Amino acid sequence: MTARVLWDMVDGPMPRGLLGVGDPDVHDIDGQWTMFLGGFSTRFRNRLYRAKLVEGAWVFDTDSRGRVAALAPDAPRGSWDAGGMHTPSYVPPAGGHGERIYYTGRLTSKHYGPKSRYSIGVLERRDGEWVRRDSPVIVGDSRRSSVLEPLVVYAEGRYRMWYQANPHEVGPGELPDYELRYTESSDGLTGWTPPAVFADSSEGFFDNTVVRRGDEWVMVLARGSNLHGTPDFPEQGLWWMTARHPSGRRSEWSAPQRLLDTDLPGTPSWFGHGTYGPSLAFEDPESATVFFSGTRRAPHWPVLALQRLLRLRRPPVPSPFFLATGSITVDPGVFQRKST
């Protein structure tokens, strides 16, 4: 298993115009490997971006000044996603509908803690532009007011969505309370079925990806990374399961198998506090790559900045935590189906 870092808030490189980038969502679109990402701009906005694999390097869309260009304009002030967009999930044209990107939208100025609030929306491709819908497609409820991390696939005539629901995004000193849910819809916008619990809070799964491979489906799951260095946080890493169909019934999937343990000695520091936002790409029969966001194992910013200055290195931008985006390569044979 080989790990590769692509973009890192601490050691770089970082695309021009971005302070941080994550939530990779990778697809082969018309023979071109394409990655959709969430990013934090130098103007302190959470936006969605696109990069393409060109001669072995990921190249972002840029504007006339060479700065990374967002996929869509910022949401209007006061809207349900005015705080920013992240965690894209691309769906190609299907069921008579065009390309879509489902995403998490933040209402509040707070990114985490009891005052944070998230919903799930969608961008639609119209006349070559990504157009934001004015209303979310999935919202929270009285018990779990935030919904985020959508993963959507179109299969067997249905838009199928897995997403996370929580009371609020975890803040410093808090332990996670994540519930992975499943719902489906014929048009992907309305008529969503009542959400079913796919993984309850005891398992701690934060998000997932689902990819078809031959006559089966592979799911890779991640637990929410330990952003704030909270003691006694659940074990971190990646898990996988397989099924004959992309079912919302957990019983139709194999038992979770550990793919990556980020608590082991020797784990690279750029994802030493865990991974999330997995995306799985089967490049050929002998190559599988899992892309993900990693949380760096590092001291708080003042200490980290001092350490780097003493080594004559530039300190990172002040942040409560430091993220990176990278990948691991694995043997595709790992994902052979196992019965439950």
Results as ranks from 00 to 15, higher is better:
A3E: 14
A3S: 14
R4N: 15
R4L: 07
L6R: 10
M9G: 05
V10T: 13
D11R: 15
M14D: 06
R16S: 14
L19S: 01
G20I: 00
G20D: 06
V21H: 07
G22H: 05
V26S: 01
D28H: 06
I29H: 12
D30T: 11
G31H: 04
Q32W: 02
W33H: 08
F36A: 06
L37P: 00
G38M: 11
G39L: 03
G39N: 05
F44L: 13
F44M: 11
R45P: 00
N46F: 04
L48G: 03
R50W: 02
R50E: 03
K52V: 05
K52A: 08
L53I: 05
A57G: 07
A57S: 12
A57M: 08
V59Q: 15
V59D: 10
F60M: 05
F60P: 08
D61T: 05
G66E: 05
G66A: 14
V68A: 10
V68K: 01
V68L: 00
V68D: 04
A69Q: 15
L71A: 04
P73I: 07
D74A: 14
D74C: 13
P76N: 03
R77E: 15
G78C: 10
G78W: 05
W80H: 08
G84E: 02
G84V: 01
M85K: 07
M85V: 03
M85S: 03
H86T: 01
T87I: 02
S89R: 07
V91M: 07
V91Q: 11
V91I: 07
P92M: 09
P93C: 00
G96L: 11
